[in-house]
Design a protein around this nucleic acid. Structure first.
Lengths: 181, 181
DNA sequence: TCGTATTTTCAGTATATACTGAAAATTCAG
DNA sequence: CTGAATTTTCAGTATATACTGAAAATACGA
């Protein structure tokens, strides 16, 4: 690995963090490198920067592409494939959430719904189903909330976030407001 | 493994899901089992239910305890250690978030802050630092927001969540409201 | 304090995952 | 269509992680 120290620290950190997010070191480092890079990079440049094998880099890029975290960007008069990340960091967050939802939340909700349907054959199973129902409702509420929030454009979303719990003060006046508006 | 089908499905699912959350199959299954159980369970009961070795279960419980996901619950006149999960699912969510923050978010913020401080020695590094600053600010905003929201009690939080993006309509009247209240 | 029930530790082993090099497939200019 | 440039695949190997059994440590009643 042969990178400016500032970039190297970041890349290594994300390599480690990746493992906590279900992606491996290679993938984490590749993503970090692309995120920091001003221009899109091709596979050979990534190999030079990170010191992984060519095939490992290809696999990493393929995985990142399947998660919609990197995109192909061609450079005129160059046959090589160049890869870059989304420019807007909010798009990145939205993609990350969407991926997790598709891969983890939805299958879990499906499993919960199907198991809750089953006729319980003991008190123990009945209790278990109640707990699953509770979990199901919570997950559904959070995903519904996220879906709603995701419709709000970035600038307004930032304002809402910055207000934080202060929004609660507004909420108290909900009924009053309806009268006025 | 010898469990009622309803429970087994859930337990196996969480075993698989665990790997995406940085916990292994054993730990995922143990947690799922405890979550569904009406009474706290001791290590031997978990061994019987899941078929892992005694030591593997001990390690799993230790890890879950270190994440504050399970707690020791003693049963009168029994020397064994019994383990159970939090009763309120919102407490579970709060603990999960808190853990991730402590283990992932805070170290990342620290790393970012320190690297951003460095004097850039090239245009490339300068650009990288700007991207890191952007990421830092986003993460900080989200954690600040979460911290604020975490202060709101559960019932009111649920109301806020159910309102979802409708809160945005209230937000439009923010200034008007100040005049009234 | 002793002895037994119980939990924890840890070295060794099994299993799963990551990584590589070589070979196959694809792409595309001429 | 040909052949060079480039990417992708995949069987084999290396590495990391999970899991086990036996032994050590701990907790506690008598």
């Amino acid at each position: 690995m042969n990178l400016p120290p500032v970039i190297q620290t970041f890349v290594l950190h994300f390599g480690e963090m990746g493992s906590r997010w279900g992606i491996n070191r290679t993938v984490g480092q590749i993503y970090a490198l692309l995120y920091l890079s001003e221009q899109p990079l091709n596979a050979d440049q990534i190999v030079d920067a990170l010191g992984f094998s060519r095939s490992n880099v290809a696999m990493g890029l393929k995985e990142l592409a399947s998660m919609n975290l990197v995109m192909l960007k061609h450079i005129p008069a160059d046959r090589k494939d160049y890869y870059g990340t989304h420019d807007d960091i909010w798009d990145i967050v939205r993609n990350l959430v969407e991926e997790r939802r598709r891969r983890e939340i939805e299958p879990t909700l499906t499993m919960l719904r199907s198991v809750i349907m089953e006729k319980p054959s003991s008190e123990q199973e009945k209790h278990a189903q109640e707990k699953m129902q509770e979990m199901h409702d919570l997950i559904e509420m959070l995903t519904d909330w996220y879906e709603e929030m995701n419709k709000v454009d970035t600038e307004r979303l930032v304002n809402l976030l910055k207000m934080g719990a202060k929004i609660y003060n507004l909420y108290q006046f909900k009924d009053k407001l309806k009268l006025i508006s």
